[in-house]
Amino acid sequence: MKTVIINYGAGNIQSIKFALQRLGVEAVLSNNVEEIRNADKVIFPGVGEASSAMKKLRESKLDRVIPTLTQPVLGICLGMQLMCNASEEGNTKGLGIFDTDVVRFSENVKVPQIGWNTIQNLESPLFNDVRENEYMYLVHSYYAEKSSEMIAESEYDIKYASALQKNNFYGVQFHPEKSSKAGSKILENFLKL
């Protein structure tokens, strides 16, 4: 099985690579279209600012490739946000895979949200053997609004989608690679899809 982590210059991909290594999987970092297309599993990471990350995707033409992938794809954090229709951050048009928008937390709460929050209403094989209200590590200022594609929900100021799924596309707002054993379980579940 070949797992590719899309390497488009946005964020901390080393940690994802290490987390997969702990599961015995040696992932390949790549921005090569053919290599991504031929992978069995694709991880789409992202940390940082939405519009500049989207710009990098466009420069490498990955913005056109990702939505056409047919194998299981997992967007993490900003990766998930970029898979949505649009983000308020930098007025960014997203890849439009998930039919929801990404907006900023209100000033009622500290922004960014940093730390461990619970995920609930888990509805996906991604969460096999993961308990309701499990803790996940999150760092973000923008969130995906609830939608029919939501497979996990979290609450910070409001209730929002902390995971989404549409067909072969999965997205998680939290960092499974940094969320201890339960996070590792989610990565393992993804690799088994």
């Binding site: 290490f18 987390a19 290594q21 590590y137 960092h175 940094k178 996070g183 590792s184």
Partner: peptide
Amino acid sequence: VASQVDIP
């Protein structure tokens, strides 16, 4: 640390 520890 990053290779062996699974918290931030």
